[in-house]
Simulated assay, not measured.
Amino acid sequence: MKLLYFGDIVGRAGRRSMLTNLPLLTEKYAPDFVMANGENAAHGFGITAKICASFFEAGIDVITLGNHAWDQREIMTYIQEESRLIRPLNYPETTPGAGVGLFEARNGARVCVAQVMGRLFMEPLGDPFEAVENCFSMITLGETADCIAIDVHAEATSEKMAIAHLLDGRVSLVAGTHSHIPTADAQVLPGGTAYQTDVGMCGDYNSVIGMKKEAAINKFTRKMPGARLEPAEEEATTCAVLLETDDRTGLAKKIEPVRVGGRLRETV
């Protein structure tokens, strides 16, 4: 089967870019399942129920979140009613929503989607390594699910890579999000798990990780309160990864980065 995963969608420019390119990429690649990270979709901070609905209507099957999960407070209620919205697995047990879900792909395959959030240089949470070990001791590739895709929302490259190697051979895909910059390390690990440290963002790259440059620069140079960060709104690049799995084992046959439009070199 084929799975298409869009990286962090940042603001209006990112939404517009992803929604414009989704039909083109669907026609070109014919994915059986489509995921997107939406935690920056609402003006860079969280996501709303209305935006979720627009993504689902366009053909996104599952939306993952991250450290901006609750920036739009309405999501705390919405996520309890919408199983296609996934928050980090290693949040406390009492947190609304779920960190893992099992879904049906267009070809009938069972797709397990999970998200875990890193702890290095981020807010303190439960151990992400323990969280995935506990989760995937109960969910088995080839038995419980035909494809398992994990979003590792983390700052540190080392933490993302370590989680991928821990799960190598047990899941189909480990894809990193959060840093908004696509990395050049798309690969199939020795055990058969596809991996990329960061998918990159769907957003305007004439920016500081999707935000307007001036306010971001001031935060670094003046160290004083200033203008609120706002998403850059020029032409955006859509960044994603395309996974192809072996229908027999659920392990990866190949992974390739996808980039369309904007300032980055296109792959399509």
Rank of each mutant, 00 (worst) to 15 (best):
Y78H: 15
I79F: 02
I79G: 05
E82M: 10
E82A: 03
L85H: 13
I86E: 03
P88C: 02
L89T: 00
Y91P: 01
P92G: 00
E93D: 09
T95K: 11
P96D: 02
P96M: 08
A98R: 15
A98W: 14
V100D: 10
L102R: 04
L102H: 03
L102I: 09
L102C: 07
E104C: 09
E104W: 06
R106N: 10
N107D: 03
R110Y: 12
C112D: 05
V113N: 07
V113S: 01
V113R: 10
A114G: 07
V116Y: 08
V116A: 03
M117W: 01
G118V: 10
R119K: 13
F121S: 00
F121A: 05
M122S: 06
M122V: 02
M122G: 01
E123F: 15
E123L: 13
P124K: 13
P124I: 12
L125Y: 01
L125Q: 01
L125H: 01
G126D: 15
G126E: 15
D127R: 12
P128A: 01
P128F: 09
F129P: 01
E130P: 05
E130T: 13
A131M: 13
E133V: 13
E133W: 10
E133I: 15
N134C: 11
C135W: 12
F136C: 02
S137H: 12
S137F: 07
S137C: 13
L141N: 02
G142H: 03
T144V: 09
A145Q: 03
D146I: 00
C147Q: 14
I150Y: 00
I150A: 03
V152Q: 05
H153L: 02
A154D: 06
A154Y: 01
E155D: 04
E155Q: 08
K160Q: 06
K160N: 07
I163Y: 00
A164R: 14
A164D: 11
D168L: 08
R170G: 02
V171I: 14
V171Y: 13
V171C: 11
V174M: 11
G176S: 00
G176T: 05
H178F: 07
S179Q: 12
I181R: 10
P182S: 01
T183M: 10
G191W: 10
G191R: 04
G191D: 00
Q196K: 11
M201A: 06
C202M: 09
C202A: 00
C202E: 08
G203R: 12
G203D: 06
G203V: 08
N206V: 12
S207M: 00
I209R: 06
